[in-house]
């Protein structure tokens, strides 16, 4: 999976370079987005953390962020996105610190609607890494896993000037976890999930846009 992702990233980079060379400068630019906000796991964390209902609900809400880099040719954008998610929780005898990292090449559209307003769409396929550094009755437990994912995003951009803008975005990342590796009590345990655990994520974020 990692090799396929690297090949796709390389192809996107080559395509972006071709776009940058073959068109007039005003049709081409770089776009950078940085967002931060709220992340939500609709399927909760049951199976990955303690099954207490209120705890699982709490662990499904957390902070999310992403960074996106695009080559723009007219309205078409091609690039790369990294997205992260984290949530923390603690019960009387257990605690969990979850991280999800997703990286994927992207393709989409950047459409000027008015002089100061644009909308954008993007989608892609990539890989997600899951990590939970937890403690069970004061003993450490590390859970790691990886998954294949797809994402779709939509955003509105308010352009402050030619280069800078404010962006509001909604993103969905769909992924399922088939197995995890649990390191506990000096042992590595492979845990398989059937059916697979959903790691689908929704993020609502605000950020900045910079274009060159």
């Amino acid at each position: 999976m990692m090799r396929k992702c690297l090949i796709i990233i390389l192809l996107c980079g080559i395509m972006g370079g071709i776009f940058a060379q073959n068109s007039t400068p005003r049709n081409n630019s770089f776009l950078v987005f940085l967002h931060g906000g709220y992340g939500y796991l609709p399927s909760k964390t049951k199976g990955l953390t303690s099954a207490d209902n209120s705890y699982v609900k709490k662990m499904s809400s957390g902070a999310a962020w992403n960074a996106q880099l695009y080559f723009k040719h007219k309205m078409l954008i091609v690039g790369l996105m990294y997205s992260g998610y984290t949530s923390k929780g603690k019960l009387e005898n257990t605690s969990d610190n979850i991280f999800g990292h997703y990286i994927a090449p992207q393709i989409g559209m950047h459409i000027p609607v008015a002089k100061v307003f644009s909308i954008g769409f993007n989608g892609g396929m990539g890989g997600m890494i899951y990590r939970n550094k937890s403690e069970v009755y004061q003993n450490p437990r590390l859970v790691t896993g990886s998954a294949f994912g797809v994402n779709l995003g939509v955003r509105g951009i308010f352009n402050i000037n030619e280069h800078w803008g404010i962006s509001a975005e909604i993103m969905s990342i769909i992924a399922t976890l088939g197995k995890t590796n649990v390191n506990y009590h000096s042992e590595n345990i492979l845990v398989r999930y059937f059916p697979q655990l959903s790691m689908t994520q929704l993020t609502f974020s605000l950020g900045i846009k910079y274009s060159l």
Binding site: T49, S50, H185, F194
Partner: peptide, 12 residues
């Protein structure tokens, strides 16, 4: 067998 349920989590 590989585990189908995480054996490091106490069951309900």
């Amino acid at each position: 067998k590989n585990s189908f349920v995480d054996p490091t989590i106490l069951p309900e």
